[in-house]
């Protein structure tokens, strides 16, 4: 990696100040994407702003009918936290499938959301559960947060501080892993609750998205059969050496069925 300055602020305000002062600085939480990019010299930030010293970014709490998870919460913590296991077990199960043990103990939910990798797991859950992304300055509904491949509604100096998930009646998740990277080739998160039915899809397209036709079908009848005949159009889906767009379109239906079965 190239040389860079290193900052370790102890508050969100200080972190944002550092980001605002230097557009070429990058915040780093778990570093599971950024550090490999640095090692490969694919990224040349002037400074890294290490968020691991900010206590207010940590922790899981229940706020009314929602679970609020701090941005620096690791995947391992999400997978094992008693309140998440009790309130949104499908989210914990999803977190338990991210990467490997090492990644789950370093990678964070805030980092994953802000990075918005098309093949990351969380965005599908955020969309399906109608989550709200919390930042240092505002609350952004998931529907307005994920804009495109590695692109979000965050401003250049804006920091994800947490995410609020409304507690659903039931939710489920299923994915097929890319045999090489183990990222999601296509994953579907389904949820049913006071916010309505949500179907979030990751891995299939340049950005996670909601499958509206499936949401309507599941609203009418919550069953795997309800989505079995719904075909995802392959247009605009990803195609690479691991899977064609048509294959991923098929996986959307298959994983939706399995996610409904997982939700019960």
């Amino acid at each position: 990696m190239y040389d860079f300055a290193y900052h370790k602020p102890s508050s969100v305000a200080d972190a944002v100040k550092l980001m605002a002062a230097d557009p070429e600085a990058r915040p780093v939480s778990g570093g599971m994407t950024l550090l490999p990019a640095l090692k490969h010299r694919l990224n040349k930030p002037t400074a890294l702003i290490d968020l691991s010293g900010i206590a207010e970014l940590r922790g899981v709490r229940r706020e009314g009918d929602a679970i609020v998870i701090g941005g620096m919460t690791t995947h391992y913590e999400v997978a094992t936290h008693p309140q998440i296991l009790a309130a949104i077990p499908a989210l914990a199960r999803m977190a338990a499938t991210i990467g490997d043990t090492q990644v789950r103990n370093r990678g964070t939910i805030g980092g994953s959301l802000a990075n918005n990798d098309p093949a990351a797991d969380y965005p599908a859950a955020a969309l399906a559960l109608r989550a709200t992304i919390l930042t240092d300055r505002r609350r952004i509904p998931a529907d307005e947060f994920f804009l495109g491949m590695f692109t979000t509604a965050l401003e250049a100096d804006e920091l994800v501080t947490g995410i609020s998930f409304p507690i659903p009646e039931k939710a489920g998740y299923a994915k097929l892993r890319n045999p090489a990277s183990r990222y999601s080739m296509t994953g579907v998160f389904v949820a049913k609750g006071p916010q309505g039915v949500g179907v979030g899809v990751n891995g299939a397209a340049p950005c996670a998205f909601r499958q509206n036709e499936m949401e309507a079908a599941l609203s009418a009848s919550w069953s795997a059969d309800a989505v079995a005949a719904i075909k995802q159009p392959p247009d605009d889906l990803n195609s690479d050496i691991h899977g064609s767009a048509a294959y991923r379109a098929n996986l959307v239906t298959v994983m939706a069925k399995r996610a409904v079965a997982d939700a019960g």
Partner: peptide
Amino acid sequence: LLSASFNDYAM
């Protein structure tokens, strides 16, 4: 080489 890392070369 498209399968030039463990991200794309499955072991």
